[in-house]
Simulated assay, not measured.
Amino acid sequence: MKLGYTTGYWSSGPPAGVVEAIAEADRLGFDSVWAAEAYGSDCLTPLAWWGASTSRVRLGTNIMQMSARTPTAAAMAALTLDHLSGGRFILGLGASGPQVVEGWYGQPYPRPLARTREYIDIVRAVLARSGPVQYDGDFHQLPHRGGTGLGKPLKSTVHPLRTDLPIYLAAEGPKNVALAAEIADGWLPLFFSPKADGFYRAALAEGFARPGARRTPDEFEVAATVPIVVDDDVERAADRIRPFVALYVGGMGARSTNFHRDVIARLGYERECDLITEAYLAGDKQAAVAAVPTALVQDIALIGPAAKIKDEMQRWRETVITSLLVSGSPRQLRQIAELVH
């Protein structure tokens, strides 16, 4: 199982110690480094800035929000960073949710799967550079319909370093996971649990079985964000993860539409999700955090003494995951690398 380092979201500014942690991840032989975006920092600038000081790790977006850029703009960024990194870039894409897409980017959200399919079609057409890009979809048209009528099909002036640059798709629901298996080179799950491995294997198998599926299961990458906290006190370790879970279950979506909550509820925590959501939306974040049970944390993370984590790693190795994306200080990354390998 490969290891990746995720820098996560920025809060009020750049995360502390990230430069040193990336350097250590590169030195330790980590496979990849990832940057995120929501409605603060973007994911491309930090990846280019920090990635310039690395030499081996692959550089991925987890995730680049599709509503933030047109498909051709995303393709331009991908081929640019792929050249600058010497062929180390991974384009991780995701649809996000309606609150961010419509509230921050001012773009419509309905039919995200169909939008995703069109988006990736156009990105691949730009990267293929087999001719001027033309597309007549329900959501994207090149050239633009109407307007001045002067738009013309264009081909990238830059020759892509890799026409098969890998595209990974963030997905949580079974239909979106199946879409990732059908049209992408990898899947970026959040809140993965070995308990749900069979559920996700079935969704992936559906996508792989579709006509024209891009990859076979053996060629497909699954890079999951998995918190790892080494601490002799399991409850203290769980306390490090509870705020993260409470935020996503209670605050990263509307009461009626929250895909992160749905993932946790499917693990058997429907009642707990209700308690977390009610407390969070009432403004009592402390109660929301307290409502996250330790059992839930242990389902989606590796926490506790080193020996416990090492024993539990076997269960994770037996899942569809090919890369664990972790975070932490340079010292913690060294410890995690020793436990995983």
Rank of each mutant, 00 (worst) to 15 (best):
T70I: 07
G131I: 14
K2V: 02
T216F: 02
D121Q: 13
G60H: 00
V230F: 12
G106W: 15
T277P: 07
V57R: 00
A68G: 04
A306F: 08
A254Y: 10
L84I: 12
F244N: 01
G4K: 06
T163E: 14
R27Q: 11
L275P: 06
A114K: 14
A307W: 11
E102H: 10
F30N: 03
G149W: 07
Y168C: 07
R242F: 00
E206N: 07
F220E: 01
V292P: 03
G97A: 09
M76A: 15
A279Y: 00
E206D: 11
H144W: 10
Y200D: 05
L3H: 02
Q99T: 07
G151Q: 07
G60K: 01
L165G: 02
T225A: 08
A178G: 10
A196I: 10
K152S: 08
I63S: 01
V18Q: 14
R317G: 09
K285Y: 08
R27H: 15
G173V: 00
L154E: 04
D274N: 09
V133I: 07
G103H: 05
I321D: 04
I167E: 00
A301Q: 04
L79H: 01
A73N: 15
L165T: 01
F139Q: 02
D26K: 03
A25N: 04
I309V: 09
A125H: 02
D311N: 12
A184E: 07
L142V: 03
I309A: 02
A196G: 13
K152R: 11
T116Y: 06
A288G: 11
K152D: 07
T277D: 10
K175T: 11
A178C: 13
D231T: 01
A21G: 05
A202N: 14
T277L: 12
A114W: 06
Q298A: 06
Q134N: 09
E182T: 05
V320G: 00
E338R: 13
G106Y: 15
A196E: 05
R88K: 15
G103I: 03
K308G: 00
A237G: 07
L339V: 05
S327I: 11
S156L: 04
A35T: 10
A48T: 15
A307N: 09
A287D: 09
H140N: 08
T45P: 14
D232Y: 15
T319C: 02
R266C: 13
A68M: 08
A205C: 15
K285H: 12
W50A: 14
A337P: 03
A48D: 12
T45H: 09
Y135F: 13
P110I: 08
S32I: 03
A95S: 14
V33G: 03
L44Y: 06
I122Y: 00
A16Y: 13
T116L: 09
L47V: 12
D42F: 11
R124Y: 08
R315Y: 14
M66Y: 04
R162K: 06
R27D: 13
Q335S: 15
G40V: 10
A73Q: 13
A95L: 03
H144K: 13
P46K: 06
P160W: 01
E182D: 12
G92E: 01
Y9F: 14
G8N: 14
R129S: 10
L267I: 07
V245F: 01
H260L: 06
A125W: 02
G283M: 09
A213P: 03
E219L: 14
K285G: 13
Q286K: 11
G29F: 06
T225H: 11
H159T: 07
L47D: 00
